[in-house]
Design a protein around this nucleic acid. Structure first.
Lengths: 329, 329
DNA sequence: ACAGGTCATGTTTACGTAAACATTCCTCGG
DNA sequence: CCGAGGAATGTTTACGTAAACATGACCTGT
């Protein structure tokens, strides 16, 4: 900086002012400084800047090994929104979802150069963490539950599940089976609960849910079971991957979709329109979730005490060809 | 730090030594300092640390909006490897692959707190960038071509494509069609070239390639064309998503897989084992690519002039049920 | 017993920046 | 024609850390 100042014939402070776009610098001076910067290929040192300003202009994102597609798209939206706001994004990967790993990530975070943290993770691990998040830095939790301790941004899982079940009931199915996600997933729980509640409200008795682990393979195994039940004409799968496996199992067992069995998924992954048959599913707006996460932490940084609360992002039913009225309807 | 020093009854420098795990501190003193740290909930200021040390312990990753699955898994591996080496990873998203956006990301990078950069991007955009990467900081390019200017880590695209084609020829097919990726993708080019070369080497005349854009939808459209050709009994798709669309098109047109047509994909995405039928494909080791990228930049940081070179990560053919000998063989 | 050495710890300084305060110079009203 | 006020710029200082150098205690061998 002093080199630039010398070349431009001004003080270092003036260079700083130009560098930060302050008013009160003559156009003439500004130009000279900018020329000198270009000449010397000057780049502000972000470490010194951060030290002086007390902020890093960086957001930390804690996430499991970029496992599920939803998390990835949320992360992508976070990175894009953050960049737009002039913030960088630092990844804090948690290799395996064990308590030790989470504790490790949190303690690393302690000395990491971040102004705020966005957590994309199942919160039961958050709760059980022995190392807590550094106090005083804003936290927003995405796609999970966080009680009333943190601000939460989430897809309206319950609304989406309700739409899926309603869609099937409206087609005339007498009940809807559920291919649920893993028990330790909060999203899976909420989808399952909404499925159960919607059936109950309609005066129906929910059949026992079949459980998978989000993978297509687990959906296939579950599908082999469901294919054995002639009374099963409609299935709501908790995500599109499991729905894919389910479609394969039904096909192998000779149960045609949608003529004999209707299937609805959740997520609307890009491939779901190319399944056999194209999958009716619940579209999630991950981009909006990510945007709101960034907005959330940035707001928290400005205001002193932001009230913890939950923001829900609505879903949308995408109707394709895997759903139809039940046989003989 | 001085507070900790005071509480522990030592100098700030001793605190620094303990904090950095230096030898030459009495066990007794170390314990007292650690106690004081805990007591005061001390966390080293990473900005000051970076300023003093002249390094950030951070890697920048330039990537397109986390578009393709391969990029994502590479990123994941990079983040994990970096964390293991004590480095954080900062994301530099490029929202849309235009020259302006790339230039913008590069100039942002100039004042970003990173010690090295890993680029996961098509290099024709790199080449055409008007803003260049800051000189002097190590760069490794993943999954792309970079001439001889940068170190490159890549999957052995050619080897994988060759294996795919050989597998089909060995089964007895008289030729192999190719569902290619977009022309501006270097990976797509290499896969297409290797396909062509392998056929030529076998004394065959390559049929005209059909081009898609990596998406399942484009694979579907291409598949409708291929389904019309009775002489088409074997297709090598440049990625699994397009193979998925292809399978749907063939199924809709009544051409059974693998009895009438064999299909091989590329990538081995987790879902490919659940396609109808399960897809024979080329497995890529993204984790290894990511690991080597990190290893590469870290090495460059230590040595003065690392020679640019290309490291290829081998692929592996995963044989499932979408391939069989041609009809009447 | 003392020179020479080693080890644990303390003191000084600089990293590059931006806030706070200081100075200079110019303009404008009375 | 002078002094008040303000705009442009300069000077000083502190942010938290770690390298470099300095100090002092203690040990060893002759």
């Amino acid at each position: 900086m002093s080199d630039v100042a010398r070349l431009a014939g001004v003080s270092a402070q003036t260079v700083s002012r130009v560098s930060n776009g302050f008013a009160g610098v003559t156009e003439e001076t500004r130009r000279q400084v900018l020329d000198a910067m270009r000449e010397l290929d000057y780049r502000p040192n972000s470490a010194a800047r951060a030290l002086r300003r007390g902020e890093f202009r960086t957001l930390g994102v804690i996430t499991f090994s970029l496992s599920t597609l939803g998390n990835i798209r949320t992360l992508d939206a976070i990175a894009t929104s953050a960049a737009r706001a002039g913030y960088a994004v630092t990844l804090l990967p948690v290799a395996v979802p064990t308590q030790d790993e989470v504790n490790g990530a949190f303690s690393r975070l302690g000395e990491l150069a971040v102004d705020a943290v966005i957590v994309i993770m199942e919160t039961h691990l958050l709760d059980a963490a022995t190392v807590s998040l550094p106090p005083g830095i804003p936290v927003v939790v995405a796609d999970s539950d966080a009680g009333d301790r943190y601000t939460v941004v989430d897809t309206d899982q319950a609304g989406g599940a309700r739409d899926a079940v309603r869609h099937l009931l409206d087609l005339g199915h007498t009940t809807v089976w559920h291919l649920a996600g893993p028990e330790d997933s909060f999203a899976a729980q909420r989808r399952a609960n909404a499925w159960r509640d919607t059936l109950t409200e309609a005066g129906l008795v929910p059949p026992p849910p079949v459980r998978g682990d989000w993978s297509a393979e687990s959906g296939y195994r579950a599908g082999l079971l469901l294919a054995e039940r002639p009374d099963c004409t409609a299935v709501f799968a908790a995500n599109d991957q499991m729905a894919l496996g389910l479609l394969r199992a039904l096909h192998e067992r000779g149960r045609t979709v949608p003529d004999e069995v209707s299937v609805v998924g959740f997520d609307d992954i890009p491939e779901s329109g190319s399944f056999l048959p194209p999958l009716t599913t619940i579209h999630q707006d991950f981009a909006e979730v990510g945007r709101l996460c960034v907005e959330g932490v940035l707001t928290s940084m400005r205001r002193p005490t932001p009230e913890p609360g939950t923001t829900l992002v609505p879903t949308r039913l995408v109707s394709r060809r895997s759903t139809a009225p039940p046989p003989g309807h």
